[in-house]
């Protein structure tokens, strides 16, 4: 656990170096006051300082974080990554398959596998959440959810 906190502190430190480096390439001061690089540079520097303090704190004996697993056990981790992966995949698929099909597949997977819902309920919710939402948002909320870009799907009205 302590190692993870130290690692996180180093990640923050790296992030602050990146911010400061980007800011360095921007103008620091202009005749009319702080330039584009002024605030990011200082923020990066302060972030770096704080990360260092935190690193020291977690490394010391007193600041040792409470023990406990950081990451869930294997099964939980797989589930977590699966949910995230499905969301990302559905987002990318939306532009090709259209919202209705992508969302239907997402709900189908989430409800059946991690959610362990009965098949009939899954199908009902998935249809409602994809086709239903698409038409609700399109006709009443003026939000045009993505349409399919593949020709044969567009033909089907997706």
């Amino acid at each position: 656990m302590q190692r993870i906190h130290q690692g996180a502190a180093l990640c923050f430190l790296a992030f602050s170096v990146f911010v400061a480096w980007e800011a360095w390439n921007l103008e620091y001061y202009t005749p009319l006051g702080p330039g584009p690089g002024f605030f990011p540079l200082w923020l990066g520097a302060i972030m770096g300082g704080l990360s260092a303090v935190w690193f020291v704190q977690t490394s010391g004996r007193r600041g040792r974080p409470k023990e406990g697993a950081f990451l869930p056990e294997r099964e939980g981790l797989v589930r977590l990554l699966a949910v995230l992966g499905t969301m990302v995949a559905a987002t990318f698929l939306m532009d090709f398959l259209g919202f209705q099909l992508a969302m239907f597949l997402l709900l189908l997977y989430l409800l059946l596998i991690p959610g362990r819902q009965p098949v009939w309920l899954t199908l009902f919710i998935a249809l409602l959440g994809s086709v239903g939402i698409y038409h609700l948002f399109g006709s009443y909320l003026d939000v045009q959810l993505p349409k399919a870009s593949l020709a044969f799907l567009t033909g089907l009205g997706l």
């Binding site: 949910v83 409800l111 959610g115 919710i125 959440g129």
Partner: peptide, 8 residues
Amino acid sequence: GLLFAVIV
């Protein structure tokens, strides 16, 4: 199991 998918 149902609610989380709907929230997503």
